[in-house]
Design a protein around this nucleic acid. Structure first.
Length: 287
DNA sequence: AGTGTATCCTGCAGGC
DNA sequence: TGCCTGCAGGATACAC
């Protein structure tokens, strides 16, 4: 569920609230969200302090003291709620892990489907985990030249390429579709067939859509909540994702849904041609 | 290397 | 109202 903008929104909400707090105890309600044994997880966390909150791709990283890090991948429906109310609006509905602090507060990991994963890593393992992910799309590390080089190495459909966290970190199905629509590139185009102009458009569209979504506090389709339990406002600004049958805001054509790679893709067949767009010979060279 | 499929789970919308 | 099917912001493992 949460992609880069949603995770960034969560991280910004947690940042003023977690650093400096010491873990007194950990309650594991559903051990299946842990990448390790419950006892191991608890033993690694209890007694340590939370030092900082950061994001890498779609992961929340809580730096620990003594040094190490709690990595949280939110899966489809995971949320991190600091000091939530115990009942009423904003209360956890499916708590999986509760981290109790010495000051009497609590951080709840709540996850309806329990596809999320929490893991406490040492410094080295945490660094290696970060290095295994592709560059951050909003960082200087991913300029158009770098993107072009990376794309040239792959025949995968561009939408699948964007979803691969080892290629670029943080892009999920919503923003992959949104960026491709804005860049007028068909989701199935093999990555290596994008010409420099298209790569440039994709680079710009990706950054713009991610930045705008962060500004809006992310996209709430159904489950996403920020650290305060609030919803993201970007849903009303989606141009392709989830708009099957509705008019394309660019040309008035009809947004269509296709399925490949096991996921829905949304596109405007007029703005995003699979072949022959603008006479640029997208779709690849014969041979 | 890339693709299709299955798996982990629960909830919700839509059709009947 | 109930039952059924399909679908969901993710990640991974497997066979081909």
């Amino acid at each position: 569920m949460p992609e880069l903008p949603e995770v960034e929104t969560i991280v910004r909400g947690l940042r003023p609230r977690l650093p400096g707090r010491r873990v007194r105890s950990v309650e594991v309600v559903h051990g299946d969200v842990l990448a390790e044994e419950s006892s191991t997880f608890r033993g690694r966390l209890e007694g340590r302090s939370l030092a900082a909150v950061d994001r890498r791709g779609k992961n929340v990283i809580v730096a620990l003291e003594p040094p190490g890090a709690l990595w949280v991948n939110l899966g489809m429906t995971g949320v991190l709620l600091p000091d939530p109310p115990s009942r009423g609006p904003g209360a956890p509905t499916h708590p999986a892990v509760r981290i109790f602090f010495g000051d009497g507060g609590v951080l709840v990991y709540d996850d309806v489907r329990r596809f999320g994963r929490l893991e406490v890593l040492g410094e080295g393992a945490s660094r290696r985990r970060g290095e295994a992910l592709g560059p951050e799309p909003l960082s200087e590390a991913l300029d158009p030249a770098r993107l072009e080089t990376l794309l040239a190495a792959s025949r995968a459909p561009i939408r699948s390429w964007l979803l691969d966290q080892k290629k670029v970190a943080g892009v999920g199905n919503i923003y992959a579709n949104e960026a491709l629509h804005r860049a007028r590139i068909h989701p199935k185009r093999p990555a290596r067939t994008l010409n420099p102009e298209e790569v440039s458009r994709l680079h710009r569209a990706l950054r713009k859509v991610l930045r705008s979504a962060i500004e809006a506090g992310g996209t709430t389709i159904r489950d996403f909540r920020d650290a305060g339990g609030g919803e993201g406002a970007f849903g009303t600004r989606l141009r392709a994702y989830g708009r099957e049958g509705e008019p394309c805001l660019g040309c008035g054509g009809e947004i269509r849904r296709i399925v490949f790679g096991g996921r829905s893709a949304f596109l405007c067949p007029r703005c995003q041609r699979e072949t022959g767009a603008d006479g640029e010979a997208p779709g690849g060279r014969p041979g």
